[in-house]
Write a protein that binds this DNA or RNA. Structure first.
Lengths: 151, 151
DNA sequence: TTCCATTACATGACGTGTCATATATGATGT
DNA sequence: ACATCATATATGACACGTCATGTAATGGAA
């Protein structure tokens, strides 16, 4: 197996294993990893249009209509029409949503502890430096850059 | 944003971007990345039971019944009952499937060239060394190890 | 032999992801 | 004002992934 192939599958494997682990933790508050990402984005980046939210999400390349739908139905997010531009929609967390955000942060911080210890400070820095160039310029890469601004 | 969080999203982003890029190439031969992984596994690891195939796949943690279904319907894979143990099923590529495998290899090799050049030999080695420990012991990690044996 | 646990596979249910398309609204040029 | 184009969102369609459950076949103990 050539190294590039192993790397490809290692990336797939880490993503899947991480997602399953996070999903198991988030199940305790009845959220999926994608839903949790929406909650975190809305908590950190205030009221957002659907398009603006989409540009912050790594989990979805298009517009997260249906992802948000589920959260609106469960009163975690409110969706209201923008008065100035009626094409747009303004999304914001409810009180319920803000409470959930706290729980999400706690769960994620626990995972980050584990990852940080596994890689160590130097390993973490190397990993970031190696992966960053692979996604710069792409939709997901830009989402990460935007997310770094605040949050 | 703490480094662990950035790493988490970088892994998600590289996986998604890579999958989209590969998917676009594979669409020319009407295969998805997951289907291509099945084809490659069957080509390299001979006739396999569904369970054995599942243990080689990174793309799926359970048993790939439905994934294989689609390939059987399209005459890319043959599925026949095992005579000795009738619970088991034996999967093998058809002639059609072996032809497709060649096309998949060509497409993947092109992607590997690009990745290899982006990271360089040293970068590739570092990346492998950093990611491997994150998945050792997990289902996906074991699948990669098994896959390295042959193929 | 008969019961029972185990194994291999299939399937239902649900939530993504992705692409293509539809619809409504706003912006622009004439 | 009007035709036209662009933008924001919604939705249909399809293939995953994942978990839970169902079913048939096997293996082993009493």
């Amino acid at each position: 197996m050539r190294p590039e192939e192993e790397l490809r599958f290692l990336i797939l494997a880490t993503q899947r294993e991480g997602s399953r682990a996070l999903g198991a933790q988030l199940a305790t508050i009845d959220l999926t990893p994608s839903q949790a990402e929406v909650v975190r984005c809305l908590a950190d980046h205030g009221p957002l249009s659907l398009k603006a939210l989409g540009e912050l999400l790594v989990c979805e390349s298009g517009s997260p209509s249906r992802l948000v739908d589920a959260l609106v139905k469960r009163a975690i997010v409110v969706r209201r029409e923008d008065a100035a531009d009626r094409r747009q929609v303004t999304l914001e967390l409810t009180g319920n949503g803000r409470t959930l955000d706290g729980a999400v942060r706690q769960i994620e911080d626990q995972m980050y502890e584990v990852i940080g210890k596994q890689l160590g400070v130097a390993g973490m820095a190397s990993a970031l430096a190696l992966l960053r160039p692979l996604v710069t310029g792409s939709i997901s890469g830009k989402a990460i850059e935007r997310r770094k601004q605040r949050g």
